[in-house]
Protein backbone atom coordinates (compact mmCIF):
# COMPACT_ATOMS: atom_id res chain seq x y z
CA UNK A 1 0.00 0.00 0.00
CA UNK A 2 1.40 3.35 -0.89
CA UNK A 3 1.98 5.69 1.96
CA UNK A 4 -0.23 8.29 0.35
CA UNK A 5 -3.23 5.99 0.38
CA UNK A 6 -2.66 5.15 4.04
CA UNK A 7 -2.72 8.86 4.76
CA UNK A 8 -6.13 9.11 3.20
CA UNK A 9 -7.49 6.12 5.05
CA UNK A 10 -6.13 7.15 8.42
CA UNK A 11 -8.18 9.82 10.21
CA UNK A 12 -6.39 12.58 12.03
CA UNK A 13 -7.03 12.33 15.73
CA UNK A 14 -7.63 15.33 17.94
CA UNK A 15 -5.16 15.79 20.74
CA UNK A 16 -7.06 14.68 23.81
CA UNK A 17 -6.04 14.98 27.45
CA UNK A 18 -5.23 11.68 29.09
CA UNK A 19 -7.53 10.07 31.61
CA UNK A 20 -5.75 10.35 34.96
CA UNK A 21 -5.57 6.86 36.43
CA UNK A 22 -7.60 6.16 39.57
CA UNK A 23 -8.10 3.23 41.91
CA UNK A 24 -10.84 1.88 44.15
CA UNK A 25 -11.47 -0.92 46.62
CA UNK A 26 -13.78 -3.69 45.45
CA UNK A 27 -16.15 -5.56 47.75
CA UNK A 28 -13.65 -8.39 48.06
CA UNK A 29 -11.07 -5.93 49.38
CA UNK A 30 -8.90 -6.00 46.24
CA UNK A 31 -7.80 -2.76 44.66
CA UNK A 32 -8.74 -2.04 41.09
CA UNK A 33 -6.91 0.46 38.87
CA UNK A 34 -8.69 2.17 35.99
CA UNK A 35 -6.34 3.74 33.46
CA UNK A 36 -6.17 4.73 29.83
CA UNK A 37 -4.39 2.25 27.58
CA UNK A 38 -2.48 3.30 24.49
CA UNK A 39 -2.46 1.76 21.04
CA UNK A 40 0.53 -0.46 21.71
CA UNK A 41 -1.26 -2.26 24.50
CA UNK A 42 -4.25 -3.25 22.37
CA UNK A 43 -2.72 -6.54 21.13
CA UNK A 44 -2.36 -7.61 24.77
CA UNK A 45 -6.10 -7.12 25.33
CA UNK A 46 -7.52 -8.59 22.11
CA UNK A 47 -7.03 -12.31 22.93
CA UNK A 48 -9.00 -11.96 26.15
CA UNK A 49 -11.84 -10.20 24.36
CA UNK A 50 -11.88 -12.81 21.61
CA UNK A 51 -12.71 -15.63 24.02
CA UNK A 52 -15.83 -13.81 25.15
CA UNK A 53 -17.15 -13.74 21.59
CA UNK A 54 -18.13 -17.36 22.16
CA UNK A 55 -19.99 -16.75 25.40
CA UNK A 56 -23.59 -16.95 24.27
CA UNK A 57 -25.21 -15.52 27.40
CA UNK A 58 -26.16 -12.06 28.56
CA UNK A 59 -25.17 -10.71 25.11
CA UNK A 60 -21.48 -11.25 25.80
CA UNK A 61 -21.00 -12.53 22.26
CA UNK A 62 -22.17 -9.40 20.48
CA UNK A 63 -20.54 -7.00 22.94
CA UNK A 64 -17.22 -8.87 22.75
CA UNK A 65 -17.35 -9.06 18.95
CA UNK A 66 -18.00 -5.34 18.67
CA UNK A 67 -15.38 -4.43 21.26
CA UNK A 68 -12.90 -6.58 19.37
CA UNK A 69 -13.69 -4.72 16.16
CA UNK A 70 -13.47 -1.34 17.85
CA UNK A 71 -10.13 -2.13 19.51
CA UNK A 72 -8.76 -3.44 16.24
CA UNK A 73 -9.95 -0.32 14.45
CA UNK A 74 -8.25 1.77 17.10
CA UNK A 75 -5.04 -0.20 16.72
CA UNK A 76 -5.02 0.06 12.94
CA UNK A 77 -6.08 3.74 12.87
CA UNK A 78 -9.49 3.17 11.37
CA UNK A 79 -11.63 5.07 13.82
CA UNK A 80 -11.43 8.71 14.72
CA UNK A 81 -10.92 10.06 18.23
CA UNK A 82 -11.39 6.81 20.09
CA UNK A 83 -10.06 6.15 23.56
CA UNK A 84 -9.85 2.93 25.58
CA UNK A 85 -9.79 2.56 29.36
CA UNK A 86 -8.92 -0.66 31.12
CA UNK A 87 -9.62 -1.82 34.66
CA UNK A 88 -7.02 -4.05 36.25
CA UNK A 89 -6.73 -5.94 39.50
CA UNK A 90 -3.14 -6.98 40.25
CA UNK A 91 -2.38 -6.53 36.59
CA UNK A 92 -5.19 -8.85 35.61
CA UNK A 93 -7.60 -7.24 33.16
CA UNK A 94 -11.16 -7.19 34.52
CA UNK A 95 -12.93 -4.67 32.28
CA UNK A 96 -12.51 -2.71 29.06
CA UNK A 97 -14.50 0.40 28.22
CA UNK A 98 -14.23 2.59 25.16
CA UNK A 99 -15.85 5.51 23.42
CA UNK A 100 -15.34 8.25 20.89
CA UNK A 101 -15.46 11.98 20.75
CA UNK A 102 -17.99 13.16 18.13
CA UNK A 103 -17.32 16.85 18.58
CA UNK A 104 -16.09 18.94 21.48
CA UNK A 105 -19.56 18.92 23.06
CA UNK A 106 -20.79 15.42 22.40
CA UNK A 107 -19.27 12.10 23.30
CA UNK A 108 -20.28 8.68 22.02
CA UNK A 109 -20.02 5.86 24.51
CA UNK A 110 -19.21 2.55 22.84
CA UNK A 111 -18.90 -0.47 25.08
CA UNK A 112 -18.39 -1.72 28.58
CA UNK A 113 -17.05 -5.25 28.71
CA UNK A 114 -16.66 -6.77 32.14
CA UNK A 115 -14.47 -9.84 32.41
CA UNK A 116 -15.21 -10.54 36.03
CA UNK A 117 -18.72 -10.66 37.35
CA UNK A 118 -20.35 -9.96 40.67
CA UNK A 119 -18.11 -7.15 41.91
CA UNK A 120 -19.58 -4.13 40.10
CA UNK A 121 -16.41 -3.98 38.05
CA UNK A 122 -18.33 -2.99 34.93
CA UNK A 123 -20.27 -0.30 36.77
CA UNK A 124 -17.08 1.27 38.09
CA UNK A 125 -15.45 1.18 34.67
CA UNK A 126 -18.51 2.73 33.01
CA UNK A 127 -18.52 5.50 35.60
CA UNK A 128 -14.85 6.18 34.84
CA UNK A 129 -15.69 6.51 31.17
CA UNK A 130 -18.43 9.04 31.92
CA UNK A 131 -16.02 10.87 34.20
CA UNK A 132 -13.58 11.12 31.28
CA UNK A 133 -16.21 12.68 29.00
CA UNK A 134 -17.62 15.02 31.62
CA UNK A 135 -14.77 16.04 33.90
CA UNK A 136 -11.68 15.64 31.76
CA UNK A 137 -12.99 16.51 28.30
CA UNK A 138 -15.70 18.83 29.72
CA UNK A 139 -18.30 17.66 27.24
CA UNK A 140 -21.98 18.52 27.46
CA UNK A 141 -23.50 15.12 26.88
CA UNK A 142 -22.66 11.52 26.13
CA UNK A 143 -24.81 9.36 23.86
CA UNK A 144 -25.33 5.83 25.07
CA UNK A 145 -27.13 2.65 24.03
CA UNK A 146 -27.33 -0.73 25.70
CA UNK A 147 -27.15 -4.08 23.97
CA UNK A 148 -28.10 -6.22 26.96
CA UNK A 149 -30.89 -5.96 29.53
CA UNK A 150 -28.20 -5.85 32.22
CA UNK A 151 -26.65 -2.84 30.55
CA UNK A 152 -30.06 -1.21 30.23
CA UNK A 153 -30.75 -1.59 33.96
CA UNK A 154 -27.27 -0.37 34.84
CA UNK A 155 -27.07 2.70 32.64
CA UNK A 156 -30.53 3.81 31.57
CA UNK A 157 -32.19 3.18 34.93
CA UNK A 158 -29.44 3.76 37.48
CA UNK A 159 -28.32 7.02 35.83
CA UNK A 160 -31.90 7.89 34.78
CA UNK A 161 -30.73 8.74 31.26
CA UNK A 162 -32.72 11.04 29.00
CA UNK A 163 -34.11 9.94 25.66
CA UNK A 164 -32.50 11.22 22.44
CA UNK A 165 -34.40 8.85 20.21
CA UNK A 166 -34.12 11.16 17.19
CA UNK A 167 -30.34 10.61 17.16
CA UNK A 168 -29.22 7.23 15.83
CA UNK A 169 -26.31 5.92 17.89
CA UNK A 170 -23.16 4.86 16.07
CA UNK A 171 -23.70 1.32 17.35
CA UNK A 172 -26.20 -0.09 14.89
CA UNK A 173 -28.17 3.11 14.50
CA UNK A 174 -30.22 2.34 17.59
CA UNK A 175 -32.14 5.16 19.33
CA UNK A 176 -29.74 6.96 21.69
CA UNK A 177 -29.97 7.82 25.35
CA UNK A 178 -28.10 10.72 26.81
CA UNK A 179 -26.15 11.38 29.97
CA UNK A 180 -26.21 15.12 30.49
CA UNK A 181 -23.98 17.08 32.83
CA UNK A 182 -26.91 17.49 35.18
CA UNK A 183 -27.59 13.77 35.40
CA UNK A 184 -23.90 13.09 35.89
CA UNK A 185 -23.74 15.53 38.77
CA UNK A 186 -26.71 13.80 40.37
CA UNK A 187 -25.06 10.41 40.08
CA UNK A 188 -21.65 11.66 41.13
CA UNK A 189 -21.98 10.93 44.82
CA UNK A 190 -23.43 7.48 44.57
CA UNK A 191 -22.06 5.97 41.37
CA UNK A 192 -18.78 7.66 40.53
CA UNK A 193 -16.00 6.53 42.84
CA UNK A 194 -12.25 6.30 42.89
CA UNK A 195 -9.20 7.88 44.44
CA UNK A 196 -6.25 9.70 42.92
CA UNK A 197 -3.35 9.58 42.70
CA UNK A 198 -2.85 5.84 42.38
CA UNK A 199 -0.07 4.60 44.67
CA UNK A 200 3.06 4.12 42.59
CA UNK A 201 3.37 0.41 43.22
CA UNK A 202 -0.21 -0.23 42.20
CA UNK A 203 0.14 1.79 39.00
CA UNK A 204 3.48 0.18 38.15
CA UNK A 205 1.88 -3.26 38.51
CA UNK A 206 -0.92 -2.22 36.15
CA UNK A 207 1.50 -0.82 33.57
CA UNK A 208 3.85 -3.77 33.89
CA UNK A 209 1.68 -6.23 31.99
CA UNK A 210 -1.93 -6.84 31.06
CA UNK A 211 -2.55 -10.28 32.51
CA UNK A 212 -5.41 -12.54 31.40
CA UNK A 213 -8.63 -12.54 33.48
CA UNK A 214 -8.62 -15.45 35.93
CA UNK A 215 -12.36 -15.92 36.14
CA UNK A 216 -13.91 -14.70 32.88
CA UNK A 217 -17.55 -15.38 32.00
CA UNK A 218 -17.82 -18.82 30.45
CA UNK A 219 -20.25 -20.15 27.88
CA UNK A 220 -22.89 -22.61 29.02
CA UNK A 221 -21.63 -26.13 28.39
CA UNK A 222 -23.32 -26.47 25.04
CA UNK A 223 -24.65 -23.29 23.54
CA UNK A 224 -27.27 -24.84 21.35
CA UNK A 225 -28.43 -27.34 23.94
CA UNK A 226 -29.18 -24.64 26.44
CA UNK A 227 -31.02 -22.55 23.86
CA UNK A 228 -32.95 -25.48 22.45
CA UNK A 229 -33.91 -26.75 25.86
CA UNK A 230 -35.91 -23.57 26.44
CA UNK A 231 -38.20 -24.68 23.65
CA UNK A 232 -37.90 -28.38 24.37
CA UNK A 233 -39.03 -29.30 27.84
CA UNK A 234 -38.34 -32.98 27.36
CA UNK A 235 -34.67 -32.09 27.75
CA UNK A 236 -33.60 -34.34 24.87
CA UNK A 237 -31.09 -31.77 23.72
CA UNK A 238 -29.46 -31.67 27.14
CA UNK A 239 -29.19 -35.44 27.30
CA UNK A 240 -27.55 -35.28 23.92
CA UNK A 241 -25.12 -32.69 25.25
CA UNK A 242 -24.26 -34.84 28.25
CA UNK A 243 -23.62 -37.79 26.00
CA UNK A 244 -21.13 -35.63 24.11
CA UNK A 245 -19.50 -34.53 27.34
CA UNK A 246 -19.38 -38.12 28.56
CA UNK A 247 -21.92 -38.91 31.29
CA UNK A 248 -23.97 -36.57 33.44
Amino acid sequence: MSIDLEKILRPVDMVLPEFPAKYMTLSNGQEMVVRQVNRDEIPDILPHVEKLMHVERDYYHIVAARVYAELLAYYTYRVQDEYVLAAQVDGEIVAVVNGRIVNPDIGMSFHTLSMRRGLRVGAHAFAAKMEYHMDILKQKEVLIVAESPIGFRRWMIEYKLEKRFHIPHELGGCPSWSLTRNLFDNARNTLVVGRRPVPEKLLAKAHDAILPPTDPPKPPEDLLAATRSMLDNTGTSLIDMRRKLGGM
Partner: peptide, 20 residues
Amino acid sequence: LHEEITLEGILDSPEASTNN
Protein backbone atom coordinates in the same frame (compact mmCIF):
# COMPACT_ATOMS: atom_id res chain seq x y z
CA LEU B 1 -21.39 -16.98 45.17
CA HIS B 2 -17.72 -17.93 45.23
CA GLU B 3 -16.39 -14.53 46.12
CA GLU B 4 -14.63 -13.56 49.32
CA ILE B 5 -15.78 -10.18 50.53
CA THR B 6 -14.16 -8.02 53.18
CA LEU B 7 -15.41 -5.44 55.65
CA GLU B 8 -13.00 -3.02 53.99
CA GLY B 9 -14.61 -3.57 50.60
CA ILE B 10 -18.26 -3.39 51.63
CA LEU B 11 -18.21 -1.05 54.60
CA ASP B 12 -15.03 0.94 55.23
CA SER B 13 -13.45 1.99 51.95
CA PRO B 14 -14.54 5.24 50.26
CA GLU B 15 -16.07 3.11 47.48
CA ALA B 16 -18.07 0.90 49.84
CA SER B 17 -21.33 2.81 49.44
CA THR B 18 -21.17 2.18 45.70
CA ASN B 19 -19.99 -1.43 46.00
CA ASN B 20 -22.67 -2.06 48.58
